[in-house]
Amino acid sequence: MPKLIKDGAITDSSWHTVSSQTVYEDAFATKAEQLLVPFNMWQEHKAELKASDLEIGVWLDSEDDPYELSHEVGNLPLIAVNFPIFRDGRAFSSAAILRQRLGYTGELRAIGDVLCDQAFYMKKCGINSFELPDSGDADDFIRALSDFTDSYQSTVEIPDPLFRRR
């Protein structure tokens, strides 16, 4: 089971992540009750997925446009943003858009190549749960969430930039 950190603590994840290569019919093979499906699958099979008994979340790859979830964010219990490789920084913007622009308030999870060295930035962009790769050290990660005491900028976490608070 992948290591999950949510709101600053280690927890278990009951969600099953469906990979982007999975064909739709196979997505249900695991019998998991909570499915995190790729954005493309969601787009294609939205009606059926919504009608199923399962809980459905959506994960965005770095090139997916979060604005396309505008009308869905109120209904989704989980949205994830994927880091295909840690240095691909698009997911930071996707996360910020989901929170700031679309007003998403549910669980926002980082998946993929999630490194502790980016934990703080992810948190600032509004990500509140983190699925670590097998090589990831959960304690290191939790510590890294508070690598910095504060930020200069207006962030999802604290919208007032430092200059309005200092």
Binding site: F86, R87, D88, G89, F92, S93, A96, Q118, F120, Y121, M122, K124, C125, F148, S151, Y152, Q153, T155, P161, L162, F163
Partner: peptide, 13 residues
């Protein structure tokens, strides 16, 4: 300088 330092969204451009 302050705005760009450790900007969480733009560190991996």
């Amino acid at each position: 300088r302050q705005w760009s330092t450790f900007h969480p969204e733009f560190a991996y451009l």
